[in-house]
Simulated scan of single mutants.
Amino acid sequence: MALLDRQGRLFGKFSILDIGAIATILIVLIGLLIVPGNGGSSIAQMLSAENKTVQVDMNVRGLSATDPQNLIKIGDKVKIIIRNQPRGEVTIKKVEISTPKIVAAKSDGTAVYFDDPRAISTSQSDLAITLEATAQITNDGAVFANEKVKVGTSIDIEGPKYIIRGSAMAVRY
C-alpha cells in the first residue's frame, strides 16, 4: 500500500488538503486560548481569573482648583478612565490633599521644607486618592475591564464637576 494514492489521499483514506485545513484550525484555536494578545492576557488567563476588591492609590500633582476639599468627596462613585479608555466605575475611599512643598538648605547643611508660595497663589494642590472597585486578578496583576493597572499606569477619574488625571502609586488586592 502506497503512502499517497493518485487522488492525493494519505493511506487511501484521508485527503492531504483536509488534514492541512484541520491542522490550521487547531493551531489557530491553540493560539487564541494560550498566547496573549494586545491586552497582554490570554483567554485562558481571563477565564481562570478571580474577581476581588482592588484598591488603587492614585497620585495627582499640581491640581489647579480653588476648593479641592469640596470637589472630591469620600464615598463618591466616579468613572475611571485607564489609558484614555473608559473602564467602569470606582468608589473614592480616601483623599489626602496637601500643598506642594519646596526645600531650602540651612546654613548648617540641613534641609527645611515649606509650602511653595507659587502653588498657594495659583491654588495648586497635590492629592493622594484611594480608589476601590472589583477587578479580575490574573497572574499578571489587576485587570479593570480588560485593561491592566500597575504602578505608573495613567488614570483619569471623572466626577460630575471634574476630570482629574494622575497615575497609580500602588495597587492592593
Rank of each mutant, 00 (worst) to 15 (best):
Val78Met: 02
Ala119Cys: 02
Ile72Ala: 09
Ala119Thr: 09
Gln45Phe: 02
Leu29Ser: 10
Asp108Glu: 14
Met58Lys: 05
Asn139Trp: 04
Arg118Gly: 14
Asn146Asp: 15
Lys94Trp: 01
Ala119Pro: 08
Val90Leu: 00
Ser48Tyr: 11
Leu3Gln: 12
Ile27Asp: 06
Tyr162Gly: 03
Leu63Trp: 06
Tyr173Val: 00
Thr134Asn: 14
Glu132Ala: 00
Gly109Phe: 07
Gln124Phe: 02
Ser98Cys: 01
Lys79Met: 09
Lys94Asp: 08
Asp67Cys: 07
Lys148Asp: 09
Lys148Asn: 11
Ile97Arg: 10
Pro36Lys: 04
Arg9Pro: 01
Asp67Lys: 15
Val103Ile: 09
Thr138Tyr: 06
Ile157Asn: 00
Gly62His: 07
Thr110Pro: 12
Leu131Gln: 03
Ser107His: 10
Pro100Ala: 10
Leu26Pro: 11
Val171Ala: 08
Val90Thr: 11
Val60Ala: 05
Ile164Tyr: 09
Ala21Phe: 04
Ala104Met: 13
Pro160Gly: 13
Lys79Ser: 14
Arg172His: 04
Tyr113Phe: 10
Ile16Thr: 15
Ser42Phe: 02
Ala21Lys: 08
Asp115Glu: 14
Lys161Ser: 03
Ala145Gln: 15
Ser98Gly: 09
Asp140Glu: 12
Pro36Asp: 06
Lys94Ala: 02
Ile34Pro: 04
Ser154Lys: 14
Gly75Glu: 06
Asp67His: 15
Lys73Gly: 08
Leu26Tyr: 06
Ala49Pro: 11
Asp115His: 13
Gly8Pro: 05
Glu96Ala: 02
Leu3Arg: 11
Leu17His: 08
Ile34Lys: 07
Phe11His: 13
Ser41Ala: 15
Asp116Ile: 02
Gly39Ala: 10
Tyr173Ala: 01
Arg61Ile: 02
Asp115Leu: 09
Gln69Arg: 15
Ser48Met: 06
Leu26His: 03
Leu26Ile: 14
Gly20Thr: 13
Leu131Glu: 00
Val112Arg: 13
Thr153Leu: 03
Leu131Ala: 03
Ile92Ala: 04
Ile157Asp: 00
Thr153Pro: 12
Gly75Tyr: 05
Asn84Met: 05
Ile120Thr: 15
Asp57Val: 04
Thr24His: 02
Ile30Phe: 14
Gln55Met: 07
Met169Trp: 04
Phe11Val: 06
Asn59Gly: 15
Ala133Arg: 01
